[in-house]
Structure formats: structure tokens, C-alpha cells
Nucleic acid binder design. Structure first.
Length: 376
DNA sequence: AATCCGGGGAA
DNA sequence: TTCCCAGGATT
């Protein structure tokens, strides 16, 4: 091992021992708990994950409890976290563990990666953190730190090679977390805090003043704008909701019926047309309640919501349901439709965006609605 | 090798 | 606004 590597390991681990954040999943060695955290942390920041992690662990405290649950049981605990396939894959893996592994979580990265939802990163993370296997992780943080430390080109194999070279054997779990912690708190994408960085003396980018140039920027994709029309469709005191197909965008989440449109016709007519074509019901469509925008990674959706009333026809029993407005909060909703749901429950069709955010959070805490919008 | 898959924090 | 986050599955 080179002098430089020894120095990096020592400086990084000393810094980590002294400065590591007190995170819920760092208070345990339970491999299941660490697994939960690693799945939630995929492409998701620590501060976002913490409340979800706490709620999840309370409701599904073990791999057995998770395996016993249904997909509909688990989705509400993932609502708003995004990348819903993570929840489904994790659930599937839990059932595999119970059925094929006698309920025992495998201890090696090589075995873990076989499970659904576990890729190279997560396999190494669980193996090193929960089982002390000497295997390095490479995530967005590690990629950036290594890229700057060694001016490594942004090549998957080169980064992996470097990560293996500097891994502190015997303390792989701490070392891996330290690399990620450094990337998250000091060696940040913009304005890295090089002056207080424990690896400043080892950093080739800092020596040349090239921190801002590493890693090279990725080309970004332009978001596509799409337009949809949807309806709050009443039948007596009930509203029609739809569960999205399990696979694909927002899989398994519920929403108010809405349809992709390209034509520039009148929205209420389109809602009638698609309600007939896609759902098989006849409705009368009234005024536009409001327009809601929602930004996805590759998509910007603009949804026009109309008030509707059922006239005749039977809904497909599978993915459609009539529910009372006060029951809406029992279903995990898509982000864009939860904005509208909030307004129905509050009886405030038009609120400012700041108020919208508050009421959205209030809903999640299951606070009782004050008023209910009366159908016209 | 590309593309899909969310929602939010931070500057 | 823009970047990107303790990535994995699908095609």
C-alpha cells in the first residue's frame, strides 16, 4: 500500500470518527435496517429519507413483517418518496429471503446482488456496513471524490479500480460511509469546502485548482412538456379514482382519472370523450377547477382538472373505485393529484403555492379535513 | 449503451 | 433556473 493511500485512509477515518452525522441507520448493525436505508437512499438525499425510514421501520420492523405485507400495504409508506419500483423490488426481495433463504439475509455482496432491487452499489453497501466485507462502494459521492482526488477520468472501470485501491480493509463499512459523507458535506458538487477538507493534501484537483472541472458535467436531457386533462368525477357523494398500472411511471399509485391530450379542443369535451373510451362511463363535464403543473426528471406535466358528474355506465372493477372524499387520504396518491386532493379536502380551490405546501404536509400527518367541497 | 423512473434540496 | 442526489431495471 502506498504512503499516499495510507495517509488518505487515516485522514478520512479520523475525520469520519469525529464528524460523522448521527443518522438513525447508524445506530444499528441490523442488516435489514441497513438494507431499508440503502434502498431509500438511492438517488435520494439523507434529509428526505429520515422521516420515511422512521415510519417504515415502525410499520415493517423486520424482513418477515415486510414479506407478510401486500404491495398496497407498503405503497402508502413510500408515497412522495419517488422511484416507486424501489418499494416493489424490495418487497419482492423480502419474500425471496423468506422463501428461499430461510429468512436469513445473505452476507456477501456476491449473493446480495442477486436480489431484486439490489445492484452493485447496494450490494457492497450492505455487505460492508452490516457484515464488514472488504468491498468498496461507488456512488455519486465516491465518484466525485475519487475523480477529484486522482483526476480520474469519468470512466466506470477506472473509478472502481481506484476505489478498490484505497479501501481501508478491516474498516470497509466506515471507510465507505466516510467517502460518501465527505462527498455529501465537504466535497460537494458546487463550491466544495476544500479549506476544511481532511484530504486536501492528497487532492490532485485542489493542487491544480481544478475542483470545479471534476467530475466533468454530464449532458442533460431536455424535459418534454405534456398536457393532460382530468376530472373530479362525482357520483352522489363519491369521487372516482384510478390506480395506475404496477409497472411504469408512478406504478401502483392512485390518481384522479386523467388523460394525455394533444388536441387543442375544449378540455371538458375531451374529458367526456376519454371517460367514455377508456373507462366506459358517460359523464357530464363542467367548469375547469384549475390547472396544476408538475415537474418530473424527463417531463413537465400540465394538468387541467374539470368538475364532472357521472351519468351512466359501470366502471371497470379492477383499477377504478368510487370513494368518499374523506377516504381519499387513505390511498397513496401521485404527487400531482395529491396537490388537487389537498384542495378538495380543504375546500379551497385556489391557494397560493406556499399554502399548498403546508396543507400537503398536513394531509400526510393525517390531520382531519375541515371542510369538504360539495358537488354541484 | 441509452433510457426510464420522482421528488426535493441547494445555490 | 440548474444540478444532482448513499442507483437499478429495462430495452
Amino acid at each position: 500500500m502506498s504512503q499516499n493511500t495510507q495517509n488518505i485512509q487515516h485522514s478520512l477515518l479520523s475525520w469520519y470518527d469525529q464528524h460523522k452525522r448521527d443518522l438513525p441507520w447508524r445506530r444499528t448493525k441490523d442488516p435489514y435496517a441497513i438494507w431499508v436505508s440503502e434502498i431509500m437512499l438511492q438517488q435520494t438525499q439523507v434529509q428526505t429519507v429520515i422521516p420515511y425510514y422512521e415510519r417504515w421501520m415502525k410499520r415493517f420492523p423486520s424482513i418477515q413483517k415486510l414479506a407478510q405485507a401486500t404491495v398496497d400495504d407498503i405503497l402508502p409508506f413510500w408515497e412522495g418518496l419517488g422511484y416507486y419500483a424501489r418499494a416493489r423490488n424490495f418487497h419482492k426481495a423480502a419474500q425471496e429471503i423468506v422463501q428461499k433463504y430461510q429468512g436469513k439475509i445473505p452476507t456477501s455482496a456476491q449473493e446480495l446482488i442477486q436480489l431484486s432491487g439490489i445492484g452493485p452499489y447496494t450490494a457492497s453497501a450492505i455487505a460492508s456496513i452490516a457484515f464488514d466485507e472488504d468491498t468498496p462502494v461507488v456512488d455519486g459521492n465516491v465518484r466525485r471524490v475519487i475523480s477529484r482526488l486522482f483526476l480520474t477520468p469519468d470512466d466506470k472501470d477506472k473509478i472502481q479500480e481506484q476505489a478498490e485501491k484505497i479501501l481501508a480493509h478491516g474498516r470497509a463499512g466506515d471507510f465507505n460511509q466516510a467517502m460518501m459523507e465527505l462527498g455529501a458535506t465537504i466535497c460537494t458538487p458546487q463550491n466544495p469546502q476544500c479549506l476544511i477538507c481532511p484530504l486536501q493534501k492528497n487532492c490532485q484537483a485542489f493542487a491544480k485548482g481544478l475542483q470545479a472541472d471534476y467530475p466533468p458535467l454530464m449532458k442533460r436531457v431536455v424535459q418534454k412538456a405534456i398536457k393532460t386533462v382530468g376530472g373530479i368525477i362525482w357520483k352522489e357523494d363519491k369521487i372516482l379514482i384510478h390506480q395506475r398500472p404496477l409497472k411504469g411511471l408512478l406504478g401502483g399509485l392512485w390518481e384522479f382519472p386523467n388523460f394525455r391530450v394533444s388536441e387543442k379542443k375544449e378540455g371538458s369535451k375531451l374529458l367526456q370523450k376519454y371517460s367514455h373510451q377508456e373507462i366506459g362511463i358517460l359523464i357530464s363535464a363542467g367548469e375547469k377547477i384549475r390547472q396544476v403543473k408538475h415537474v418530473y426528471t424527463h417531463l413537465i406535466e400540465s394538468l387541467d382538472i374539470y368538475l364532472g358528474r357521472w351519468v351512466k355506465g359501470k366502471i371497470p372493477s379492477k383499477n377504478y373505485k368510487w370513494v368518499k372524499s374523506i377516504e381519499l387520504s387513505q390511498y397513496p396518491f401521485t404527487g400531482i393529484c395529491s396537490k388537487i386532493r389537498t384542495r378538495i379536502l380543504n375546500g379551497t380551490p385556489n391557494v397560493s403555492s406556499s399554502e399548498e405546501k403546508k396543507s400537503h404536509k398536513a394531509l400526510k400527518k393525517k390531520e382531519s379535513p375541515e371542510k369538504v367541497l360539495i358537488p354541484t
